[in-house]
C-alpha cells in the first residue's frame, strides 16, 4: 500500500512538467547561463584534480582518467539534483515555516510525490548530458570499452544512485519539521555532497566509513563509476539496488513521521 503509484500520478506529473517547460522556454538566456556555469564548474573540478595529480599518480588507487569518469557521473547527478530536487523538495523547508505546505496537503495526490517532482528546471538537464559526455570521453582515454554486462550494471547502479540522492534529500528536508527555523537545510546537502567528487577510497578510514554507511554518498558516484570501469564486478548492481531500496524505505518512513508532526502542530 505504501508504494502503490496510481496511474493518475503520471498524468499529473506530465501536466506539471509541460507547464514548467513552457515557462522555462520563455527564458532562453538562462540556458546559456546554465551551460556556462556548468563548464566553469567542470573546469575548476578538473583543475583541482590536475593539482592533486601534480603530486601523486593515484588517488585512492584510481588513476587520473578514472577519477574524471567519476567526475562526469558526479556532474550528471548534480544535473538531476538541480533540475528536479532543489526546485522541488528543496523548497520544503521554507514551506513548512510559512505554512505553504497546507496548500500541498490539501491536494488529492501523494504529498511526498507532489512535493518531490512538482518542478522540472529543464536547462539543468544539460548538466546530465555534459556529465555523461565527460564520463564517456574519459572512458575512451582509459582505453576501456565496457561490455554489455558492465553497461547494464552501470545503468542500474546509476539509477540506484539517483534514488539514494533523492532519499538523502527527503530525509534532510524532513528535518525541517523538527527544526522549523532552518530555512537553508539544502546547504547541509551541498556541504556533504562535495565529498562525492572523489573516489571514496581516497579518504582516511573514518571519513570513508561515514560516506559508505552513514551518509551513503559513496553509493552515488564511486559505485556506478566502478561498475562502468570494471573495477567492481557487475554483481555490485544488485547491492546498489538493495541499498537504494533500503534508503528509499527509510526516507519514506521518516517523511511519514515528519508529516504526522506537522499535522499535530497546525492543529
Amino acid at each position: 500500500m505504501m508504494f502503490r503509484v496510481p496511474r493518475s500520478a503520471f498524468r499529473v506529473l506530465a501536466a506539471l512538467w509541460r507547464l514548467n517547460l513552457a515557462e522555462e522556454l520563455q527564458y532562453r538566456a538562462n540556458f546559456v547561463a546554465s551551460v556556462l556555469g556548468t563548464v566553469f564548474w567542470i573546469g575548476t573540478a578538473l583543475l583541482t584534480l590536475a593539482l592533486f595529480f601534480r603530486h601523486t599518480t593515484r588517488l585512492g588507487g584510481w588513476d587520473y582518467w578514472e577519477v574524471v569518469v567519476l567526475l562526469g557521473v558526479f556532474n550528471a547527478l548534480t544535473g538531476v539534483i538541480e533540475a528536479v530536487l532543489r526546485p522541488g523538495i528543496g523548497r520544503l523547508a521554507s514551506e513548512v515555516r510559512n505554512g505553504g505546505l497546507d496548500l500541498v496537503l490539501a491536494k488529492p495526490v501523494d504529498a511526498q510525490g507532489f512535493v518531490s517532482f512538482r518542478r522540472l528546471d529543464v536547462w539543468h538537464l544539460t548538466d546530465v548530458v555534459l556529465g555523461l559526455g565527460l564520463a564517456g570521453y574519459a572512458l575512451s582515454r582509459l582505453g576501456r570499452v565496457p561490455g554489455v554486462l558492465q553497461l547494464a550494471a552501470f545503468v542500474v547502479a546509476l539509477a540506484a544512485a539517483g534514488i539514494v540522492v533523492y532519499a538523502i534529500w527527503v530525509a534532510l528536508m524532513s528535518l525541517a519539521f523538527w527544526f522549523v527555523s532552518v530555512e537553508n537545510l539544502s546547504v547541509l546537502f551541498d556541504a556533504v555532497y562535495e565529498g562525492a567528487r572523489y573516489p571514496v577510497t581516497a579518504y582516511p578510514g573514518a571519513l570513508r566509513f561515514v560516506f559508505v554507511y552513514l551518509l551513503p554518498i559513496a553509493w552515488t558516484t564511486t559505485i556506478p563509476t566502478s561498475a562502468l570501469t570494471g573495477r567492481l564486478g557487475p554483481e555490485i548492481a544488485v547491492a546498489a539496488a538493495a541499498v537504494a531500496a533500503l534508503a528509499f524505505v527509510l526516507a519514506r518512513l521518516l517523511w511519514r513521521a515528519a508529516l504526522r508532526r506537522y499535522t499535530g502542530a497546525s492543529g
Binding site: 527555523s181 532552518v182 546547504v187 556541504a191 582516511p204
Partner: peptide, 28 residues
C-alpha cells in the same frame, strides 16, 4: 540568536570543505 540552527548549518558547511581537502591531501 533566533536562527541558532541556521548558524550550526553554516558552520558545518564551513568545516566540510577544508575537511574534504585535508582528507585528500592526507592520503596523497
Amino acid at each position: 540568536l533566533q536562527y541558532r540552527a541556521s548558524i550550526v548549518l553554516w558552520i558545518i558547511w564551513g568545516v566540510t570543505e577544508p575537511t574534504i581537502a585535508l582528507g585528500i591531501w592526507w592520503s596523497i
